[in-house]
C-alpha cells in the first residue's frame, strides 16, 4: 500500500497544520551528502509495516508542514538527520539512506534508537527519537491508513469527526 500525499494531508490535519505543501521539496544542506527526503523515506520504510510504501509525497507533505510551521522543528530535523547518519556510519559504514533495509534495521536495533529515551531536549539520540522516529510513527499511526490496519478508522489524535458508532450487529 503506497502512502500518498492525501494520506499525508490527513496526517497533517491530525496535527492541526494547514499546508499547501507538495510542490516544495525537502532539500538543503544537512551536513552530509544525503538530502533530508531520502533519509526520512528510508527511515519510514523500516519503521512502517512492510506492506506500506512511504512515498516522498507523504513524507514531504507531513514534514514540510511541520517545518513551515516551526523554525525550531526544522533545526531539530536537520540535526537529527546528522545524528542518524553518524550512527549509520559507525554501525554500517555509510549514510543511513544508502544502506539496505536490513542494514537500516540493524542500525536501529544496535543503537539507542527506539530502545533509548525519547526527549525533546535530551541527548542527540534522544532527540532523534523524539523529533524523527516518534513524529513519523505519530504521522502514520494517527492517520486513517495506519488505523485501518488494526481496524480503527479514527485513531485517537486524528480529527475524523465524532459520533462514529457502528451497530452492535456489526
Amino acid at each position: 500500500m503506497e502512502l500518498t500525499r492525501r494520506d499525508a494531508v490527513t496526517a497533517l490535519t491530525a496535527a492541526g497544520i494547514t499546508t499547501t505543501a507538495g510542490c516544495a521539496g525537502l532539500t538543503g544542506e544537512t551536513g552530509s551528502d544525503a538530502e533530508p527526503m531520502e533519509v526520512l523515506v528510508s527511515l519510514a520504510d523500516v519503521l512502517y509495516p512492510s506492506d506500506i510504501e512511504p512515498t516522498p509525497e507523504f513524507i514531504e507533505t507531513f514534514m514540510y508542514g511541520r517545518i513551515t510551521d516551526e523554525e525550531s522543528y526544522r533545526e531539530e530535523l536537520t540535526a537529527g538527520i546528522e545524528t542518524l547518519n553518524q550512527l549509520a556510519a559507525d554501525e554500517q559504514g555509510g549514510a543511513f539512506h544508502t544502506l539496505s533495509a536490513d542494514q537500516r534495521r540493524s542500525v536501529i536495533e544496535n543503537t539507542d534508537l527506539r530502545t533509548g529515551p525519547s526527549e525533546p531536549d535530551g541527548s542527540d539520540v534522544a532527540r532523534v527519537n523524539y523529533y524523527l522516529l516518534d513524529e513519523l510513527l505519530f504521522a502514520f499511526y494517527s492517520s486513517p491508513t495506519g488505523g485501518e490496519l488494526i481496524g480503527n478508522t479514527n485513531p485517537r489524535g486524528f480529527p475524523g469527526g465524532f459520533g462514529y458508532s457502528p451497530s452492535l450487529e456489526q
Partner: peptide, 17 residues
C-alpha cells in the same frame, strides 16, 4: 491510543504492527 502504543514500543516494521 494507537500512536501511543506504537511510539512506546521498541519494535519497528511488521513486528511493531
Amino acid at each position: 491510543s494507537v500512536a501511543e502504543v506504537a511510539i512506546g514500543s521498541n519494535k519497528i516494521g511488521d513486528a511493531l504492527l
